[in-house]
Simulated assay, not measured.
Amino acid sequence: MTLRQLAAASLLALCTQAATAAGPLPWRGISLSSAEWGEKLPFPGIYGKDFVYPSVDSTAYYQAEGMNVMRIAFRWERLQPTLMGEFDAAELARLRAFVDGTSARGLHVLLDPHNYAAYQDQHIGKPEVPIAAFSDFWRRLALQFKDNPKVQFGLVNEPRNMPTEVWAEAAQAAVDAIRATGATNLITLPGNGYTGAWSWFETGWYGTPNAEVMGRVRDPLDHMVFEVHQYLDKDGSGTNAECVSATIGVERLRRFTAWLKANKRRAILGEVGGGANPVCEQAVRGALKHLEDNADVWDGWLWWAGGPTWGDYFLSLEPGADGKDKPQMRWLAPFLKRP
């Protein structure tokens, strides 16, 4: 083989390695929302009317598209009606039926207490909801699901309205309680202030920046990743179908990615979404390409949202009554590994 041929072969090998490295990330999924609904009604509400769990069968659609993790939202208060008390048998049975049935299909399930780090609107760390109550909740939940390796533990959805230092203390207590049960499941750790990737460094509106505090939380098993959310509309709330620009996804993730690298930590993008228009398509694809290009610190992503009760919600990926895919599913196809 000549030097030119050797160089060409080496270049081909490098390109092949690069293409392989840029393939789909380990976790690709969706947040299924409906079991946490009815939070404005007197708890616990009426099952089948105020809230409902997605069916196990409904996950087959997402699995066929190449998703491998379902994030299931539910309410802490429904599962544990009294702080430090036993779980409600009926609610636990509903959650377990979904988890066991879905994981039996070969899918992973990310548990999502969709509570914003609060219990009945009282935030963790206040006298009404001491940190010990949050760690007790996670001790009990870990004991229920620790023997299923396909279950992942998301500590809570989008902490807010509390000092970042208090949230970090509560998160550490929950991690310690989980590991004390012998559970080895993956844990996902959100930051304060709705855990926005773009606001990880901001000062003022939610307290001390996550970038200065959340790195203190440690898992003795080192089997924990940060969970950030990122929407692409003007205020980053995900309530507007229009995205700021075609490049806003990359722009809002780039600095957090650098923080992960500098701190030798990993993350998943636990919520992302955009309306069905060309600008959002480019923005979402850019964001997911950024994750794949930085697979040394990013482990995956989950679309917001799916679930049986969304109707014509502009971010829902549930197929329509005609069985057709939503436009956004086409955007995600290059980032999904079909079974």
Score class of each variant (00 low, 15 high):
residue 5 Q to D: 12
residue 19 A to G: 02
residue 33 S to W: 08
residue 35 A to H: 08
residue 48 G to N: 05
residue 49 K to V: 13
residue 50 D to A: 03
residue 52 V to M: 01
residue 55 S to M: 04
residue 55 S to F: 02
residue 55 S to G: 12
residue 56 V to F: 05
residue 59 T to G: 00
residue 59 T to L: 11
residue 60 A to P: 06
residue 69 V to P: 05
residue 72 I to S: 06
residue 74 F to W: 08
residue 76 W to L: 05
residue 78 R to N: 07
residue 78 R to C: 01
residue 88 D to I: 07
residue 89 A to C: 06
residue 90 A to S: 11
residue 95 L to G: 02
residue 105 R to F: 07
residue 106 G to M: 14
residue 109 V to A: 09
residue 110 L to C: 12
residue 110 L to F: 06
residue 112 D to V: 06
residue 116 Y to W: 14
residue 127 P to M: 12
residue 137 F to M: 08
residue 141 L to G: 05
residue 144 Q to F: 00
residue 146 K to V: 07
residue 148 N to L: 05
residue 151 V to I: 12
residue 158 E to F: 04
residue 161 N to V: 11
residue 161 N to T: 08
residue 163 P to S: 09
residue 164 T to V: 11
residue 164 T to E: 06
residue 167 W to K: 13
residue 170 A to P: 01
residue 171 A to M: 14
residue 177 A to E: 03
residue 185 N to K: 06
residue 185 N to H: 00
residue 189 L to G: 11
residue 194 Y to R: 07
residue 196 G to P: 04
residue 199 S to P: 03
residue 201 F to K: 14
residue 203 T to A: 14
residue 207 G to C: 11
residue 208 T to A: 15
residue 214 M to Y: 09
residue 215 G to P: 02
residue 216 R to D: 10
residue 223 H to P: 06
residue 228 V to M: 15
residue 231 Y to Q: 03
residue 232 L to S: 00
residue 232 L to Y: 02
residue 233 D to R: 03
residue 234 K to A: 14
residue 234 K to V: 10
residue 236 G to K: 07
residue 237 S to N: 11
residue 238 G to M: 02
residue 242 E to Q: 13
residue 244 V to W: 04
residue 247 T to S: 11
residue 248 I to F: 09
residue 249 G to H: 01
residue 256 F to M: 15
residue 258 A to T: 10
residue 259 W to T: 08
residue 259 W to Q: 08
residue 264 K to S: 15
residue 265 R to H: 13
residue 266 R to Q: 15
residue 269 L to I: 13
residue 270 G to A: 15
residue 272 V to G: 09
residue 273 G to Y: 01
residue 281 E to C: 05
residue 284 V to E: 03
residue 288 L to M: 11
residue 288 L to Y: 13
residue 300 G to P: 09
residue 303 W to K: 02
residue 304 W to D: 04
residue 306 G to C: 06
residue 311 G to L: 04
residue 314 F to P: 07
residue 314 F to E: 06
residue 316 S to A: 10
residue 318 E to D: 10
residue 326 K to W: 04
residue 334 P to D: 00
residue 336 L to E: 05
residue 339 P to H: 09
